[in-house]
Design a binder for these strands. Structure first.
Lengths: 174, 174
DNA sequence: TTACACGGTGGACAACCTGTCTAGCCTGTT
DNA sequence: AACAGGCTAGACAGGTTGTCCACCGTGTAA
């Protein structure tokens, strides 16, 4: 395990061909469906020894496949029922980062990406109501370096964020 | 607690004014930063009784503020280094759902939204490489009812998805 | 005012899980 | 043939969980 760690330290990106096998996939799927499960229970359900389940889990975390086990907080659960994607053009001279930093200071801005295409930045924002969204967008427009914004409101989300199909798909290639 | 559950069953959306207090926020923040913490350790760090921490946590889950504790799987960790947003127009007669269902069958499609604006659907997709992205987009275009697509590639993500600022912001209003 | 529900505290219990270590076995590689 | 890496199986102490309990303060409603 020390070898693994040091190797990963030297070459943080790959080295292990970035694939997972079927057992890894089953482990992730199991934990995704029943997150409260302990390692021991996982090992029982997967039909392997506890040490194996533990080692697999540790390895997935070490490799960056699993980045954490944080609680999934739902904006809707907090009363933020409106989601929107806001794309924007920015003053190029200043670069992206100063703008991103200011956007990061707005709680309702959940993520910011720099993108290809007509716009420079795309961010996901939430708000309590459509009227509240106006307030959030105003804050974004006030950010130094933001020239123009374009908002797209999310009406419905037929497919909520998920990664499981990706996980289930990988072993067939590994 | 039975009362709470039944009331929530009847009125799943609100009733509790959808706000959290400072203790809830600190609990979520603590668990977000150190997910491996148990309830007992949380209670110690928050300076409250274990029963309190446990009750708060249960309530947050029951209210839908916390939707789960699933492992956070990183597409990058799986070798999917390219992220893109694909917006598309669809044949309106058929409605959104049949298209969304087919999109949901594509593992690389991580989420699908119906949106306002020129396009009808917006989805987030990942791929192993830009060339691989072409393959994924081809699959999307092949979906029955999809008329036109427009892809935006994510170059960088200065602000990765986060909800914590939202959580920290709420108590000031509750 | 008197009840009562609700949320918090502090303590207690058995059952369980975790971290850690051991030893042995198998397989692919050098 | 030797060796590293991964899996199994068993064992141990220590900590944690789930679940009780009694008690107390506060706000609401009769």
């Amino acid at each position: 395990m020390d070898n693994l760690s040091s190797l990963l330290g030297i070459c943080p990106v790959n080295l292990y061909s970035m694939t997972i096998d079927e057992l890894d996939a089953r482990l992730i799927a199991l934990l995704t469906e029943e997150p409260r499960l302990g390692v021991l229970e996982c090992s029982r359900r997967l039909g392997v020894a506890r040490g194996t389940a533990q080692a697999r889990l540790d390895r997935l975390v070490a490799r960056g496949v699993i980045t954490g086990f944080g609680p999934d907080v739902s904006p809707e659960g907090l009363g933020y029922d409106v989601t929107a994607f806001v794309s924007m053009e920015i003053r190029q001279v200043a670069g992206h980062d100063p703008v991103a930093d200011q956007l990061a200071a707005i709680p309702e801005v959940l993520e910011v990406h720099t993108i290809t295409g007509d716009s420079d930045l795309l961010c996901r924002v939430v708000a309590r109501t459509n009227a509240d969204l106006q307030r959030v967008i105003d804050r974004i427009v006030d950010v130094q370096g933001v020239l123009r914004t374009n908002s797209i409101i999310v009406l419905d989300t037929p497919v909520p964020y998920r990664v499981l199909p990706l996980v289930a798909d990988v072993p067939r290639r590994g």
